[in-house]
Write a protein that binds this DNA or RNA. Structure first.
Lengths: 184, 184
DNA sequence: GGAATCATGTAAGTAGTTACATGATTGA
DNA sequence: TCAATCATGTAACTACTTACATGATTCC
């Protein structure tokens, strides 16, 4: 079967929920997948168009006076099959993260200790905020039972985010202590 | 001061080591930064060219019969200043990882349990390999004392990679157990 | 009255990958 | 003799972001 890009698969998956428009797809991503998958309108709208051309989805245009036309997308059986096929495919590569903090630390010899410590503080601060966002999302998902069939899976992805963030925060602490000890 | 892209800063940093050519920059990245920063020749060569145009580096061309000309790059004081300035800048955003395994799990309702378990197994397998690679890099860095001034920093970035990989592996185990229990 | 939400999309630009092209030397 | 290493680079392509443009409704 033909291969599509990641954005297409992400949208195929989202169209299995009750999200039907580009706008609501964006909202779902921002609210629930944002910790491991971001996407912009500049990708969503052209991708939706292409998906219809490819026969993965159909579109119904609802015209209302004044407002822009509302485009409601639905999966075709071809779309469903493509999603299933992708889900069954084991991943080829683990994601390679690009980490700016580590890049700066890598060249740490050219910085002052104070600056390195500041970088670590900032990073930990951001990680803490991220962690709190995860907890907020978790709360929201749990209280909003509309999609109860998906909830378990969604929470598992959040658990991943929390664990990784925790490990990163612990690294920040250990590394900070290391530099503090060196200062003495 | 003018802002440059991440690739430029990465290369500025590497030019503080004894790497002087596009080829050896690529090698250093593959051997030591690969766990959080990848880069291809298609980026390195055009970036080096631009860096010379911008006055961040100078180039000396060494012609030898037969072989392609060897281009040796050196930082200018402007280049050093740009690197220092970037190092002092605290990061604005933590890296947003795109994780295909999580994306598939997010739509796990449309998969069989067996398939989800298989995905987790594959992911854990890859993480294990990654972890082992980190240990191999660590060994290599420790035994190769040429760059001893940088070694501490390089090892810290590896520690990060190991911790995060460990957390991810633990998540794999917990999640697997969760699905195994459900099966009963 | 003004911000937020709903709703669409495009154009220009940046970033990055992959495949291709070339060819000498060194070591097993 | 064959693979690996050294060494350069470009062209085509894919992916993604940001800024822009439009405008009604709803809530504070």
């Amino acid at each position: 079967m033909k291969k599509y890009n990641h954005t297409t698969y992400a949208i195929l998956g989202i169209l299995t929920t009750e999200c039907r428009t580009g706008y609501s797809i964006k909202r779902l991503i921002d609210q629930s997948l944002n910790h491991f998958w971001k996407i912009s309108y500049g990708q969503i709208y052209p991708t939706l168009k292409r998906m219809v051309e490819e026969g993965l989805a159909t579109v119904k245009t609802l015209t209302e006076g004044g407002k822009p036309d509302r485009h409601e997308y639905s999966l075709t059986s071809k779309g469903e099959a493509a999603l299933k096929e992708w889900l069954e495919q084991p991943i080829e590569q683990i994601p390679h993260e690009r980490n700016e903090v580590l890049l700066k630390l890598f060249f740490g010899r050219h910085q002052t200790k104070e600056n390195t410590l500041l970088q670590l503080e900032t990073y930990k601060q951001k990680l803490t905020e991220t962690y709190e966002t995860y907890q907020a999302i978790e709360k929201m998902i749990k209280s909003n039972h509309q999609h109860h069939e998906d909830v378990t899976y969604w929470l598992l992805t959040l658990d991943y985010g929390k664990r990784v963030a925790t490990a990163a925060m612990e690294w920040c602490d250990t590394t900070r202590d290391y530099f503090k000890k060196e200062e003495e």
